[in-house]
């Protein structure tokens, strides 16, 4: 049983939480300008690292708030819990964000407001 430190309610059993999978997947704004293959990166392709993983959790049976976590998928150790919309602050969390292959994808580039067709 994992004990998860909800930023609002404190330590609670994992049965109160739902895991929302990979964090920091930005929806392409230029969705009509990118190819099906690039949209699949956003929709289906998932990071699945053996090690530090940035993921979303929701305290479904508590405050019902979403938050982000950096968790090790081998030890199950929660390295860091941080707010939705923010970036990881820990060294391992920062490295996991920077090293993720998603940073170099066309779908993520198309998620930036400055990208081609971004205003549509």
């Amino acid at each position: 049983m994992l004990l998860i430190d909800c930023p609002h309610c404190g330590l609670r059993d994992e049965t109160e939480f739902a895991c929302g999978g990979e964090a920091h997947i930005a929806r392409p704004l230029a969705e009509n300008a990118i190819t099906d293959a690039e949209f699949a990166e956003y929709l289906f392709w998932r990071d699945n690292p053996k090690g530090v993983f940035l993921e979303r959790w929701c305290h479904t049976a508590g405050c019902r708030q979403w938050f982000n976590a950096a968790r090790d998928t081998v030890t199950h150790d929660f390295i860091e819990i941080y707010a939705m919309g923010s970036m990881p602050a820990s060294k391992a969390g920062k490295a996991a964000f920077a090293d993720a292959w998603r940073r170099n994808t066309a779908s993520e580039a198309a998620a930036k407001p400055s990208s081609k067709g971004g205003k549509s």
Binding site: L2, D13, E14, C19, N48, F53, R71, T73
Partner: peptide, 13 residues
């Protein structure tokens, strides 16, 4: 189980 893991052990619930 409901979260990703490579640990070859699951959670008790």
């Amino acid at each position: 189980d409901k979260y990703n893991s490579y640990a070859q052990r699951g959670s008790f619930p």
